[in-house]
């Protein structure tokens, strides 16, 4: 069923029908709806979508850092065969940093300004690994070298403000990798950086994770980064995955109208294009998601059925899409969604 069968057996991360709600005074808002995907060992899964689609929320939910009034309302999260969505605060704390590393968008604010970077890395190592302080410091130094900090033996005792933005994000990457996690969740790791630095950081992240066999969930709204980096890509819209599949297929032959709209908005170098295509309208707010397919009001190809029910995620060629247009092509359409 669903997209699980196309990834290798025994995925590092397996998210099954994950739903997340915000309980507010005006009622319950569903921010994530039946999210399912797997990430295999060493695989990079790109997650794209516009702001508010639920990309970051998915990452935050996996690592168990959803703030109130948000709460998981359904589904399961499995990390290497261990269920982690119901193991409680202390259980999660041992997973965070140790088995799932996280990289946030803004390296300027991710580091505690009052602590030396070396101490912050050593702190992470000491929290998760039975090593001496000297050993933790040696490892911190090795990590700083590995992420390409020049003169790391001097910089290890520097404070975050003494680094540039790009260098700080390298430190953040070193922190995320400090306890050798199985999975890195990178939430828009380059958005806050200069364009010239973005490519360096992405290349670095890719190289480090490849050599260590670390899987990556790369959350971004930059399709260029996805195209270069990801093995597979999940396109999110209004709290659901609307298309997921190998990156080449999704980019070249998107099946969901929203995904093709996104791809049409990528400027290609060399090609003479008068105008980039644009998806008219805006994503609905959480409290105003229309019945049926959430993309219907903006969809040029909408049919009658779209307003009636949420389409299931069905296999279309190499990818899976949540669209009624492809229903006929797939006989196995399960009752999901």
């Amino acid at each position: 069923m669903m997209a699980a069968d196309e990834t290798a057996m025994d995925p590092v991360l397996s998210v099954r029908n994950l739903s997340l709600e915000f309980v507010t005074r005006r009622g319950v808002l569903r921010a994530l709806n039946e999210i399912s995907f797997d990430i295999a060992r060493g695989e990079v899964l790109g997650v794209v979508g516009e702001s508010g689609a639920g990309k970051s929320l998915t990452g935050t939910a996996i690592i168990g850092l959803i703030d109130k009034p948000g709460r998981l309302s359904g589904g399961e999260i499995w990390l290497k065969g261990q269920r982690i969505d119901n193991i409680g605060h202390d259980g999660l704390r041992k997973i965070r940093g140790r088995r799932i590393g996280m990289i946030f968008q803004d390296p300027l604010t991710s580091l505690n300004p009052l602590f030396r970077v070396g101490d912050q890395i050593a702190e992470t190592i000491l929290t998760h690994m039975p090593v001496s302080k000297a050993e933790a410091r040696a490892r911190a130094l090795a990590l700083l070298t590995e992420v390409g900090i020049p003169a790391p033996e001097n910089r290890i005792d520097a404070y975050p403000h003494e680094f540039s933005g790009g260098m700080r994000q390298r430190v953040v990457i070193a922190l995320a990798l400090a306890a050798e996690p199985d999975l890195i969740i990178a939430d828009e790791p380059t958005t806050a950086l200069d364009v010239s630095v973005q490519a360096q950081i992405i290349t670095l992240l890719k190289r480090l994770c490849r050599t260590r066999g670390t899987s990556v969930m790369l959350i971004t709204h930059d399709m260029g980064v996805i195209a270069e980096t990801a093995d597979r890509v999940a396109v999110m819209y209004a709290g659901r995955i609307v298309e997921i599949g190998p990156v080449a297929d999704v980019i070249r032959h998107p099946k969901h109208p929203y995904a093709s709209g996104l791809m049409g908005a990528i400027p290609a170098l060399g090609a003479k294009v008068q105008r980039l295509t644009q998806i008219s309208g805006a994503m609905p707010r959480l409290n105003a998601i229309p019945p049926g397919c959430a993309f219907r009001p903006r969809c040029m190809q909408a049919i009658g059925k779209c307003a009636e029910a949420v389409p299931p995620l069905v296999r279309v060629g190499a990818t899976s899409a949540r669209c009624w247009l492809h229903e006929e092509q797939d006989e196995r359409s399960a009752a999901h969604g």
């Binding site: 965070r96 940093g97 803004d106 992470t124 929290t127 306890a179």
Partner: peptide, 16 residues
Amino acid sequence: ADFIRFARARGIADRS
């Protein structure tokens, strides 16, 4: 602050 969130994401103990 973000760095507190990041510290949580690194698995640092609450008291710390």
